[in-house]
Design a protein around this nucleic acid. Structure first.
Lengths: 181, 181
DNA sequence: GCAGCAGCGGACCGCCCGGTCCGCTTCTGC
DNA sequence: GCAGAAGCGGACCGGGCGGTCCGCTGCTGC
């Protein structure tokens, strides 16, 4: 990564922040123009930093995944594995809930190196927790971190159209209960 | 509903069938052109029968909902309520799985009379089953047919990206287990 | 069989949006 | 402070798609 001129670096940062905000507030179909407007740059500038819209999307997702990864690694040290996994699930669920539009298209970002790597590492870490619990017989056999991620993500998405504000908590709890051995 | 000329009625039927197929095979973003092509008509013809693309989408969904409704009504007569509800869930899950793209935007079709009515009636019937089970203490309290519909629908969607072919069954089973009292 | 109208369909429109390009601006190293 | 390069941004392009329109077709009632 070549070093950027100071103003270019500042713009890059602002674009990433603006993109995250825009996905959260507008939805998965934000336009590049909207992101550029929020960042206070021309939309040509966005395309100099990211060759396509998908590349920008992937970059924002990668940031979020790295945050989750750091959090998950800390949890590996916890003595109570069950509590660690549940804490991670609740934390990840809340992250997805806040940035639901952002994570919408995460499956399509697999082609981007950094997203693929972050996802793989995250799954590795969470699978460690899962296997511990499965060996101790307190978690349903045959599920892995991808299954849990998909189900929890789905529960969040399902809760978006519910009237009650706390629907997402109830839905995640239902999934967690369903995952017990 | 004025009576249509024979060829117009035939075209209308073909459009509905073609639209259902197209949503299933192409995805939620099928174009009107694609649907018209499959129906063997010009796309102007589609717009004479349905004022907007959303109206066509709603019409196709309404057909599916009516089928589910008829099925659910039959189940009301079953002596074993638990089996009836589970059978309905599995049946609806399979319907959603086959036509996942179609049901994707169902929340946005509430503005269309026939969809709204069919949904309301379906929820009424399923809620009857649910309340029976809740009174007998075998189903988690505080959930209604909308919750279950949302969760099962989301579980199906979540299973689409899984490698294993039978992921949807496992996911639906996890949700059903989580819904037990 | 024919008149007349319901119905057809494809040419056309306008909008949106991702992506490109190039003349101008602003930063940086000296 | 200056030269030159790095960066900027908005005008522009092209493709796609929802929706309209109108001249032609072929169905229907008599």
């Amino acid at each position: 990564m070549a070093v950027l001129r100071a103003d270019a670096q500042r713009n890059l940062d602002r674009i990433l922040v603006a993109a995250a905000d825009a996905y959260a507030e507008v939805g998965p179909d934000v336009t590049i123009d909207e992101i550029a407007r929020r960042a206070g740059v021309g939309h040509g500038t966005v395309f100099r930093h990211f060759p396509t819209k998908d590349a920008l999307h992937a970059a924002v997702i990668a940031v979020r995944l790295d945050e989750l990864l750091a959090y998950a690694r800390d949890l590996l040290e916890r003595p109570d594995t069950r509590a660690a996994l549940e804490e991670f699930v609740w934390m990840a669920a809340d992250a997805v809930r806040r940035d639901r539009a952002l994570f919408e298209g995460i499956e399509e970002c697999g082609a981007f190196e950094d997203v693929a790597v972050a996802k793989a590492e995250l799954h590795d870490v969470v699978d460690k927790l899962i296997r511990r619990l499965q060996r101790s017989g307190t978690l349903r056999r045959g599920v892995d971190s991808r299954d849990i991620g998909a189900l929890v993500g789905a529960a969040i998405k399902a809760s978006m159209h519910a009237e009650r504000e706390d629907a997402w908590r109830r839905y995640v709890q239902i999934v967690l209960d369903g995952l017990r051995a």
